Simulated scan of single mutants.
Amino acid sequence: MEYATVQGVEVPKVGLGTWRLTGDDCRRAVGTALELGYRHVDTAQAYGNERAVGAALRDSDVEREEVFLATKLAGGNREYDDVLRSTDESLAKLGTTYLDLLLVHWPNPRTPLEATVTAINDLVEEGKVRHVGVSNFGIDRLDRARELSDAPILTDQVQYHPYWDQRDLLDYCTVHDVLLTAYSPLGHGGVLRDPVLREVGERHGKSAAQVALRWLVQQEGVCTVPKATSREHLEANLDVFDFELTDEEMERIRQPSKLRTLKGFVAARLLG
Rank of each mutant, 00 (worst) to 15 (best):
E10S: 15
V134R: 01
D24I: 15
R198Y: 08
P226K: 01
L259G: 11
V11F: 04
L123Y: 00
A212T: 06
V67Y: 00
R110A: 15
R198P: 03
L36C: 06
P195G: 07
R85T: 14
T22K: 15
G189V: 06
D168P: 08
R58Q: 12
Q157W: 06
T181N: 10
G201D: 08
V129G: 05
G187V: 00
I120Y: 01
G190W: 01
D140Y: 09
R214A: 12
P109Y: 06
P12Q: 10
L142S: 03
R110M: 15
S135L: 04
E248K: 14
D140I: 10
D143Q: 12
R110S: 15
E63R: 15
A74E: 10
V124W: 00
T71S: 09
T96S: 01
E235K: 15
Q218M: 08
R39P: 00
T97L: 13
Y47T: 07
A212G: 03
N237D: 12
Y160A: 12
R110Y: 12
L69A: 02
T261C: 13
Q157Y: 06
T116K: 07
V196Q: 03
G221A: 11
T181V: 13
R110K: 15
Q45W: 13
A236M: 09
A55Q: 11
G8C: 08
V6N: 01
L216Q: 14
H188K: 13
A33N: 02
L57E: 03
V11Y: 06
E202W: 06
F68D: 04
R254K: 14
R110L: 14
V132K: 05
E66G: 08
Y80E: 00
G205Y: 03
G75K: 14
D165Y: 11
E63A: 15
V11D: 00
R231G: 12
V196K: 09
V134G: 01
T111M: 10
T32L: 14
L154E: 00
E244P: 04
S149W: 03
A52P: 02
R58G: 13
Y47Q: 02
E63T: 09
V14Y: 04
S230Y: 10
W164H: 15
A151Y: 03
H161V: 04
E79D: 14
S149Y: 07
V53Y: 02
T97K: 13
I139S: 02
